[in-house]
């Protein structure tokens, strides 16, 4: 299946801004982050088709996944 993945801020560094990925059925958002080498400690908001989702959320054909970094500085 094909899923569009969007990355934000420094998560793009050395990766991409937006890309369509071929994934196996049953893939979760967490699996995408891990496959991209993103430290899960860095992950903040995750969204599936513009709605908040958990890392354990499974993705499906034509879904759009957005992964934002955790932002904590003040």
């Amino acid at each position: 299946m094909t899923v569009k993945v969007k990355l934000f801020a420094h998560l793009r560094d050395g990766r991409f801004r937006e890309r369509e990925l071929k994934l196996e059925p049953g893939t979760a958002v967490r699996d995408i982050a891990t496959a991209l080498g993103i430290d899960l400690d860095e992950v903040g908001v995750t969204m599936l088709n513009s709605r908040h989702c958990n890392l354990t959320q499974e993705v499906h054909e034509d879904d759009v996944v957005a992964i934002f970094p955790m932002v904590g500085g003040g």
Partner: peptide, 21 residues
Amino acid sequence: ERLYPNPAARQRPPAVPGFSA
């Protein structure tokens, strides 16, 4: 809690330029 799903995450002090703040 949605912004910080993992409160125990290891975080290095981030860069914070004055214009971003």
